[in-house]
Design a protein around this nucleic acid. Structure first.
Length: 872
RNA sequence: GGGCGGAUAGCUCAGACGGUCAGAGCGCCUCGCUUACACCGAGGAGGUCGCAGGUUCGAUCCCUGCUCCGCCCACCA
C-alpha cells in the first residue's frame, strides 16, 4: 500500500465497479421511495467546464446520499441537440473548408451534424464518468431521439389545437447571420457608442420638426413622427404632415404616450418595420409598416439605388451623408446605448417584421406562477424566487419558430385548399378535405421548446409509463441562474400543463465560477478550466469536494485552484489514517482489518465516548446540512471531524492501546467506518477504497446505510465534556513548551495543580502522556532543580518542570495571561453592568455571561495565586 | 431608469434565529524527517467584519444613506 493516495490508480477501478453493480440504474418496480433528478442536458456542442462540474457534482452527491437513505434513485442524464448553437459550429467548420451549407446540401449537412453529435456527446459523458457520476446511463436521452420528438409534437399539437400556438407577422429579434428569429430571452444587450443624429423634417405647409435617432438609415422606412401627448412645443404640428427627406414620402405627425418629452427634441421618428417600440406605436395608430432592411441585414430600397444593397453600417454612413447634404442634419453627438446581440453568434440583431410561430403565455404562466408563490417549488437561494415571479408576471408571448436547417420541424402542414393543421404523425393528406398536396412548415422549433418538456419527456410521456408514474415529479433541479427564464420557468409551465404536476420541487442555483481575476470563464478567452485537468492533478474526489464547498452558494466565486488542492491532501489524510488502522489492527498480510468484537458501552474509556459523542454530532450536522442543500457546511464539518477530531486527537490519544484494547479498536474502526459513509456522497472514490479495508466492507458504500448512531453515543456526560477541557490543557502545555524552547523529545515532567473539573487522575495522566508532541510524564511531586512553568487553562492548572527552559519567560507569561484574563473580566463585567442588560437580555445570555465571568475569575485567581507563590 | 447580489485576515471564501462568530483553507513565521500521512505534525503572527449615521441593553449580522464591484430587468429614439 502506497503512502500517498493515488487517485489515478483507484478511480478507474471504482468506476468500473459501480458500472458492474449497476449502482446508477434505477428499478422502477421497487417499492422504495423514489428520488429523481433530471440532469440538465448539456448542450452537445459544449464540453463540460467547472461550472457544470459544480452543479452536477452536488447532484451526484444528492443521488448517492439518497441511495444510502434507502431511496430508489433515478438520476436521468441526457444531452440537448442545441439547434442554433450546433448549426453555428457546423457552419463555421464548413466555412473553414471554404464551402457553405447550401453548397453541400441538406443531406451532407445532416451527416456532419450526426458526426459532430457523436463525438462531442461522448466527450461529455466521459467527463461526467471521470467525476464518478452515477447517472442512469441506460435511460439517457437525447432530444432528437424518436420518442422525444414524438413528445414534442404531441405538446405542439395540443397547444395548437387549444389555440395557444399561433402564427403571425410581428416584429421579432432577427439574426442576420443565422437568418432566423430568436426569442426575447436570447438577446444579449451590450453597450454601444453611437452617434445620435438630429434630423429636421420639413412640415407640409411650413415649419419643421426635429427628431433624434441613432439609426438614420431607418428613416427610409419612417411612417410617422410622434410626439408626447399634449407637448406644448409640438401641439400645433400634431395632425399635420411631414415630408420626409430623401424619399419624399408624406407621413403624419401623431401623439403617442411612448414618446419621452424630455429626450432629445421630444419628437420621435416612427419606423414600425425596424424598431420594436415603433412597431407598437404603429399598431396603435394603424400606421403602415415599411420594410427597408432585408433579412440579410442589407438595405432593401430598390427605388433608392444609392442605398439599395448596402449593409446597415454603411447605409448609416451613406444616409447620414445624404441627409447632411440635404441640410437636415441639425446635430450629431456621441451617444451610449444598449444594442441587442444574438446570444449565440454575437451578431447585432435586426428588429424586423416577420411571420413567426408564437406561444400565448398568459394561460400557461398563471399556474406556474402560483406554484412558486405557494411554495410548491422553492428556489435555493430563495432570492431567485423574486426574479422568477417578476418575470412571470409580465411575461410576453414566446417566439418559438426558427429559420434553421437543424432542429425539430414545426409539425404543421397546409393543404392546397388552405387548411392548416398540426400533426403528430406525418400526414399524407389533409384531414379536413383529403387533399394530398401538403406543404410542410419550413421552420424548426426553438431549442428551449423541446427542453421545456425534459422532466417528463425523458420518462416516456405521453405514454403512461412505469418510469413516469414512478419518477415524475422529480425532486431537485440543479442549474445556473442564467437559464431560469429560458428553461426553468418553461419547464414549470409545460410540466403543469401536460402532467398536471410540478416538474420538481427544489431548484438549486449553482454558483457562477469565474476566472481567478474575476472575469467570466469562457472558451474564447481561453481561461476556461477543464474538469479533466483538475482531476488529473488532484483526483476526482478533490474536485467533487470543491464543488460541494463552492457549488450551491448561488454566488459568484473566483476560481482558486488551491482550494481543490486542499481536498487532495484531505483524501490523502483519509487514506493514511486507514493505513494506520490496517498496520496496527490488520494481520501481517491481510488487506482487511478483522472485525473487532462488539463492545458494551460501559467498557469504553472516556476518550472513546468523547469521540463517539463528537461523531454523533457530526452525523446530525452533516445530515441536516445535506437536507438543506448546504453542501459546503457538510464538507466543512466532515473535514473537521476527520482531520482534527479523529486523526489529530482521537487516533493519537488511542494509539497506545489500539493494538491491545479491543474497545479502542472497535471505536476507531467504527468511527472511521461512519466517517467514510458520511463522506461517501461527496468523495466516493477514496471512501470506497478506504472502506474496502474495513471489516464492514460491502461491494460498494452505495449499498450501505446512512449512519444512524445509537442514542448512547450522544448521551450527556460530564466526563466526556471534561475531555474537551483536557485537550485545551494539553494544547496550552504544548504552547508553553514551545514558548520556552524546550527541545523536541526532551521529556518534561508535569505536576497537576488544582483541577477540580477534570477527569480522574488516572485518565488525565494517561491522556496527557498520550498527547503527541507534548512528551510529558505526569509525576506527583515536583522534581528538584527544574524550572517550573505554570499553565492555567480550561479550569485546570499544571506545571511543566523543565531542565533546559528559557525559564525567565515564565513570570512574564503568567503576567500576560493575568492581564488578558483581567481585561476580559472587565469586558464581561461591563456588559453585565450595562443598563438594561440583565433585564432585557434573554436569561440564557445573562446566565452565560455570569458563568463566563465566574470561570474567568477562577482562572484569574489561579494565576494570581501562582504569581504570589513565586514571589514568596 | 428599476431590481438583486457582493464588499470579513496577504489570497479564495464560511459565518442558520442580532449576545463564546471574529472562523477555515492556502500563504507567512518558529520548531520538528516522531515507523499512518512532509499531500505531515506542533506552536504562532495576522482582521476597528467597505464608509457614515440609526435602531437596540447589545450589531459583522437589522434600518437609512454613500462609495466601489458584479449581475438581471426595462420600448428614452
Amino acid at each position: 500500500m502506497d503512502k500517498a493516495f493515488d487517485p489515478t490508480q483507484v478511480e478507474p477501478r471504482w468506476r468500473a465497479r459501480w458500472e458492474e453493480l449497476g449502482v446508477g440504474h434505477a428499478d422502477a418496480s421497487s417499492d422504495r421511495p423514489a428520488f429523481a433528478i433530471a440532469l440538465p442536458p448539456p448542450n452537445v456542442t459544449a464540453e463540460l467546464h467547472l461550472g457544470h462540474a459544480a452543479s452536477f457534482g452536488v447532484q451526484d452527491t444528492l443521488a448517492r446520499w439518497h441511495r444510502m437513505l434507502g431511496d430508489e434513485v433515478e438520476w436521468c442524464p441526457g444531452t440537448d441537440h442545441a439547434a442554433i448553437a450546433t448549426q453555428n459550429v457546423i457552419e463555421r467548420q464548413l466555412a473553414g473548408e471554404g464551402v457553405t451549407k447550401e453548397e453541400i446540401g441538406r443531406a451532407a449537412f445532416d451527416a456532419r451534424v450526426v458526426e459532430w453529435y457523436a463525438s462531442t456527446g461522448n466527450r461529455i459523458y466521459d467527463q461526467m464518468k471521470a467525476l464518478g457520476f452515477t447517472c442512469d446511463w441506460a435511460r439517457s436521452r437525447f432530444t432528437l431521439d424518436e420518442p422525444y420528438v414524438r413528445a414534442i409534437r404531441v405538446v405542439f399539437k395540443r397547444l395548437y389545437d387549444d389555440g395557444l400556438i399561433y402564427r403571425g407577422p410581428r416584429i421579432v429579434n432577427w439574426c442576420p447571420r443565422n437568418l432566423s428569429a430568436v426569442s426575447d430571452e436570447e438577446v444579449t444587450w451590450e453597450e454601444h457608442e453611437d452617434t445620435l443624429v438630429e434630423l429636421r423634417y420639413p412640415v407640409e405647409g411650413g415649419g419643421s420638426i426635429t427628431v433624434a435617432t441613432v439609426r438614420p438609415e431607418t428613416m427610409l422606412g419612417d411612417t410617422a413622427v410622434a410626439v408626447a401627448p399634449g407637448d406644448p412645443r409640438h401641439r400645433d404640428l400634431v395632425g399635420r404632415t411631414v415630408i420626409l427627406p430623401l424619399t419624399g414620402r408624406r407621413v403624419p405627425i401623431i401623439e403617442d404616450e411612448a414618446v419621452e418629452p424630455e429626450f432629445g427634441t421630444g419628437a420621435l421618428k416612427v419606423t414600425p418595420g425596424h424598431d420594436a417600440t415603433d412597431y407598437e406605436i404603429g399598431a396603435r395608430h394603424g400606421l403602415p409598416v415599411l420594410t427597408v432592411i432585408s433579412p440579410e441585414g442589407r438595405m432593401d430600397v430598390p427605388e433608392l439605388p444609392a442605398f439599395h444593397g448596402l449593409d446597415v453600417v454603411n447605409a448609416r454612413t451613406a444616409v447620414t451623408a445624404a441627409l447632411r447634404e440635404a441640410g437636415v442634419v441639425m446635430g450629431e453627438r456621441p451617444y451610449t446605448h444598449e444594442v441587442g446581440h444574438c446570444d449565440r453568434c454575437g451578431e447585432v440583431l435586426e428588429p424586423l417584421v416577420s411571420a413567426q410561430w408564437w406561444v400565448r403565455m398568459a394561460e400557461l404562466a398563471a399556474p406556474a406562477l402560483a406554484a412558486v408563490e405557494q411554495g410548491r417549488i422553492r428556489f435555493h437561494p430563495e432570492r431567485y424566487t423574486a426574479s422568477y415571479v417578476s418575470w412571470m408576471r409580465r411575461i410576453r408571448d414566446w417566439c418559438i419558430s426558427r429559420q434553421l436547417w437543424l432542429g425539430h420541424a414545426i409539425p404543421v402542414s397546409t393543404c392546397a385548399n388552405g387548411h392548416r393543421f398540426a400533426w403528430v404523425d406525418e400526414p399524407m393528406s389533409c384531414p379536413e378535405c383529403g387533399d394530398a398536396s401538403l406543404t410542410h412548415d419550413p421552420d424548426v422549433l426553438d431549442t428551449w421548446f423541446s427542453s421545456a418538456l425534459w422532466p417528463f419527456a425523458i420518462f416516456g410521456w405521453p405514454q403512461d409509463t412505469a418510469d413516469l408514474r414512478r419518477f415524475y415529479p422529480t425532486r431537485v433541479l440543479g442549474t445556473g441562474r442564467d437559464i431560469i427564464f429560458l428553461w426553468v420557468a418553461r419547464m414549470i409551465m409545460m410540466g403543469l400543463r401536460f402532467t398536471g404536476d410540478i416538474p420538481f420541487s427544489d431548484v438549486l442555483i449553482n454558483s457562477t465560477i469565474q476566472a481567478a481575476d474575476g472575469s467570466r470563464m469562457s472558451k474564447s478567452k481561453g481561461n476556461g478550466v477543464d474538469p479533466l485537468d483538475m482531476i488529473a492533478s488532484y483526483g476526482a474526489d478533490a474536485v467533487r469536494a470543491w464543488t460541494a464547498a463552492v457549488g450551491t452558494a448561488g454566488q459568484d466565486m473566483r476560481f482558486d485552484e488551491k482550494r481543490i488542492a486542499a481536498y487532495r491532501t484531505f483524501a490523502n489524510k483519509l487514506w493514511n489514517v486507514t493505513r494506520l488502522l490496517l498496520v496496527r489492527l490488520g494481520s501481517a498480510d491481510a488487506s482487511v482489518i478483522p472485525a473487532p468484537p462488539d463492545v458494551a458501552p460501559a467498557d469504553l474509556r472516556v476518550e472513546d465516548r468523547w469521540f463517539l459523542s463528537k461523531l454523533a454530532e457530526t452525523v446530525e450536522g452533516v445530515g441536516s446540512a445535506m437536507e438543506q442543500f448546504r453542501f459546503h457546511d457538510a464538507i466543512e464539518r466532515l473535514y473537521h471531524a476527520v482531520w482534527d477530531v479523529y486523526c489529530d486527537w482521537y487516533v493519537e490519544l488511542v494509539k497506545p492501546r489500539l493494538g491491545s484494547d479491543p474497545t479502542a479498536a472497535w471505536t476507531a474502526v467504527t468511527g472511521l467506518d461512519v466517517l467514510l459513509r458520511l463522506l461517501h456522497p461527496i468523495m466516493p472514490f477514496v471512501t470506497e477504497e478506504c472502506a474496502a479495508h474495513l471489516p464492514a466492507a460491502a461491494a460498494t458504500l452505495q449499498r450501505r446505510d446512512w449512519p444512524r448512531p445509537p442514542g448512547w453515543w450522544s448521551a450527556p456526560d460530564d466526563a466526556v465534556d471534561a475531555v474537551d477541557e483536557l485537550i485545551a490543557l494539553a494544547g496550552a502545555l504544548r504552547a508553553r513548551r514551545q514558548e520556552a524552547r524546550v527541545p523536541p523529545r526532551e521529556v518534561i515532567e508535569v505536576t497537576l495543580g488544582a483541577g477540580a473539573r477534570l477527569l480522574p487522575a488516572a485518565d488525565v495522566v494517561r491522556l496527557l502522556e498520550a498527547t503527541p508532541m507534548l512528551w510529558a510524564r505526569v509525576v506527583d511531586t515536583a522534581p528538584e532543580q527544574a524550572t517550573p512553568l505554570r499553565v492555567v487553562a480550561a479550569g485546570a492548572e499544571a506545571t511543566l518542570h523543565v531542565a533546559t527552559a528559557a525559564s525567565a519567560s515564565d513570570r512574564a507569561q503568567l503576567e500576560a495571561q493575568r492581564d488578558r484574563v483581567a481585561g476580559r473580566i472587565e469586558q464581561v463585567r461591563g456588559k453585565l453592568r450595562t443598563p438594561g442588560f440583565t433585564e432585557k437580555a434573554p436569561e440564557h445570555v445573562v446566565a452565560g455571561a455570569r458563568a463566563e465571568l465566574a470561570e474567568l475569575e477562577d482562572q484569574l485567581a489561579s494565576v494570581e495565586r501562582i504569581l504570589g507563590e513565586e514571589a514568596a
